[in-house]
Amino acid sequence: MSSIPIECYLILSAFMFCVGVAGVLIRRNAIIVFMCIELMLNSANLTLVTFSSYLGNSIGQVFVFFVMTVAAAEAAVGLAIIIAIFRNKKTVNIDEINIFKW
């Protein structure tokens, strides 16, 4: 661990986060947009674990634990919403789901 500079982890995390941002912006399938959000949450987790490990303080990992809890809850509810939308509209393409637009 000590032989790897902390910047390597942070750059990797930033890269994954930006790939996730690009995915949310360019993909049209709601499920894949969801996966990109998971990717962004994971990159944030990587940053938290990196600092926690380099500082020798376990509170960062406690926060990762909470982030994982929230991600699991979010995935369950979000996928249920996607299923409900698919029942009504027969599509998960977010360009065609515009019932709030007027």
Binding site: M1, Y9, I31, F34, M35, E38, N42, N45, V49, T50, S52, S53, Q61, V64, F65, M68, A71, A72, A75, A76, L79
Partner: peptide
């Protein structure tokens, strides 16, 4: 990064539970 617990939870929760849901 010496975070054993988080590594195991990552595999069980993310790669296991959440991805099976997806």
């Amino acid at each position: 990064l010496n975070a054993q617990f988080i590594a195991v939870v990552q595999v069980i929760v993310y790669a296991g539970a959440i991805m099976v849901l997806f």
